[in-house]
C-alpha cells in the first residue's frame, strides 16, 4: 500500500494520478515519465500531435497496457498493475478511439451489458438478464444521457456512425463510472454530429471527472478547464486552458500561430 494519502489541493481532490509513468515499445518510448494529476469533477483535456503518446497514455491509465515503469494511483490506491476489467470496476470508464460497440446487439442490449458491470458479478445463470430491474434502469439512464433514448431497439451496427459514437459513450456511462476517459470522441464525425457530441461532452463535464483526448481544438477549448499538451511522450505544458492557449512554447510546438491552424 502506498503510504501517501491523496493530496487535497486548493483546486480539489486528486482522484487519479500518475507518477513517472513510462511505456516503451522496444526502442520507442511512447510515454516518458508522465506525471499527471486529475482533479475530481474537473474536465481535463490532453492534446498533442499524432504519435505524441496520448492513446498509449489512455491504454496505460485504463489497464489495457501494463506500464514499463512508474505508478498509477486511484484515490491514493496503487492500481499500476490492475488489468483493464478491474480498473473499469473501480470506476474508471473508458471509450475507444475506434468505434467499439457490439454491432449485432441492439442499442439497449449494448448498454444493458455495460450496466451489468453494476452487479457484484455477472456469474448468474438462471434469471434472464432482461429481468434485472436495476440493470435495465441503469441502461435506460445511460441511453437517455447519451441521447439515444429513442434508438433502444435499433441494432447498433445499423445506426449512423455518429450515433454509434454516442452509444460508445452511453456504454461507458452505463458501467457507472466516476471518471470518464474518452479517447477522441469526435474522431471522424461530421459537423452536425460533432456539435451534438460537444453538447453531450459539456453535459458530462458537469457530472463527472473527465479526461478527454481530442484533436479538435475548438471543442477542447469549449469543454476543458485544464489542458495538458503532450509531445513525444512527455508533458510539454499543463495548466488552465487560458494559460496554455497563451503559452508561447505551446503555440510554437503545437498550435502554430493560431488555434484555427490545426
Amino acid at each position: 500500500m502506498n503510504s501517501m494519502t491523496s493530496a487535497v489541493l486548493d483546486e480539489g481532490k486528486v482522484v487519479l494520478e500518475t507518477r513517472q509513468l513510462t511505456k516503451s515499445f522496444g526502442g520507442l518510448v511512447a510515454v516518458n515519465s508522465a506525471n499527471y494529476r486529475f482533479i475530481e469533477r474537473q474536465a481535463h483535456a490532453i492534446i498533442g500531435p499524432n504519435g505524441a503518446g496520448k492513446s498509449t497514455f489512455v491504454n496505460l491509465l485504463t489497464g489495457h497496457f501494463p506500464p514499463s515503469s512508474g505508478e498509477i494511483l486511484f484515490k491514493g490506491q496503487r492500481i499500476t498493475d490492475f488489468p483493464a476489467h478491474k480498473v473499469s470496476r473501480l470506476g474508471v470508464g473508458r471509450s475507444y478511439q475506434k468505434t467499439n460497440v457490439f454491432p449485432v446487439f441492439t442499442c439497449f442490449e449494448n448498454c444493458r451489458l455495460a450496466a451489468q458491470a453494476q452487479l457484484p458479478t455477472s456469474m448468474r445463470f438462471l434469471r434472464p438478464a432482461a429481468m434485472y430491474k436495476e440493470v435495465n434502469e441503469r441502461a435506460d439512464w445511460a441511453l437517455d444521457l447519451c441521447g439515444l433514448k429513442s434508438r433502444g431497439d435499433r441494432v447498433a451496427g445499423s445506426m449512423s456512425y455518429g450515433e454509434q459514437r454516442q452509444l460508445e459513450i452511453g456504454m461507458v456511462l452505463a458501467t457507472g463510472p466516476e471518471i470518464l476517459v474518452l479517447d477522441e470522441p469526435l474522431a471522424g464525425m461530421g459537423k452536425e454530429e460533432s456539435e451534438r457530441m460537444v453538447g453531450l461532452l459539456k453535459d458530462l463535464a458537469r457530472r463527472f471527472t473527465l479526461i478527454l483526448i481530442e484533436h479538435d481544438m475548438d471543442a477542447v477549448f469549449s469543454i476543458a478547464e485544464v489542458l495538458t499538451v503532450m509531445v513525444n511522450g512527455t508533458v510539454l505544458e499543463s495548466g488552465p486552458v487560458e494559460t496554455i492557449r497563451a503559452s508561447k512554447a505551446v503555440q510554437d510546438a503545437y498550435l502554430g500561430d493560431g488555434a484555427e491552424a490545426y
Partner: peptide
Amino acid sequence: ASPFGRVVSAIGVNENRVRGLGFD
C-alpha cells in the same frame, strides 16, 4: 439469456470491449 450468457455472447463479438466494460 442470463447475465452470464450475455457476457459470453459479447465475448464472441468483441472480447476486448468486454474487458473494458469490467468483465474478466
